[in-house]
Simulated scan of single mutants.
Amino acid sequence: MVRRNDRAASAGCPCGLPVEYGACCGRFHAGAGSAPTAEALMRSRYCAFVRGDAGYLLRTWHPRTRPERLDLDPGMRWTGLEILGTAEGTAFHTTGTVEFRASYRGGALHERSRFERVAGAWVYVDGEFPEGSG
């Protein structure tokens, strides 16, 4: 996975928000609270892929659909995240959907992810690849 360098750190969080990693997704990775919305969890999970943090990805995966283990490809180079749309997923909801495009060197992943709250915290349930997203 891509490792952050000092220039990337000053440019903002890998999730695309103009906030330093430590004040953005890094605080969730460090266990200082949980993502307040489905979109914030989606962004923090993207950052976990960028940073190779399989532990965080597993912790934020719904127990019903979570794999036993997660082997990340160390050669994968994530290059950007674009949120295409959200439905529900706020403090007032128990479910939410986030559609996104995550770019990597050589292509992009387009997914519509489903999230639920478990014990008050947002977790990733599963995703589908919209038709024509190749």
Rank of each mutant, 00 (worst) to 15 (best):
F129M: 15
A102D: 03
H29F: 08
G96W: 03
G106W: 09
S103L: 12
R69G: 13
G22D: 15
R43T: 08
A54Y: 00
L17D: 07
H110N: 03
S133D: 02
T37P: 10
D6P: 08
H110P: 05
W61R: 01
R43M: 07
E20N: 13
R3A: 08
G89Y: 05
D73E: 04
C24V: 08
D6E: 14
R43L: 09
Y21F: 10
G85P: 06
C15A: 10
L17H: 10
E116N: 11
R105C: 03
G26P: 01
P14M: 06
G33N: 13
V19I: 09
A102W: 06
T90G: 13
P36Q: 05
R69N: 10
W78S: 10
L58R: 02
A54I: 03
S10G: 15
Y124S: 01
P63R: 09
R43G: 05
R43F: 02
T97D: 12
L57I: 12
A9C: 14
R114W: 07
M1K: 08
R27E: 05
T97N: 02
M76G: 05
T79H: 11
A102N: 00
R66A: 15
R66S: 06
C25W: 11
H93R: 10
A87I: 01
Y21S: 02
H93D: 15
F49D: 00
L84D: 06
T90K: 06
I83C: 04
L109K: 10
E131A: 13
A8S: 15
W122S: 02
A30M: 01
R3F: 04
M1I: 11
V123C: 11
A119M: 01
T86F: 14
E116Y: 07
S34Q: 13
V2E: 01
Y21K: 07
V118A: 09
G107D: 06
A40M: 13
P36C: 12
A108I: 08
A11Q: 13
E131C: 03
L58D: 09
T65M: 05
T79C: 13
V50D: 00
D73Y: 00
F92W: 14
E39Y: 03
D6S: 12
A102M: 10
C15G: 09
P63Y: 10
G31K: 04
W61E: 02
Y46F: 15
V50W: 07
G16Y: 05
R105W: 12
V98I: 06
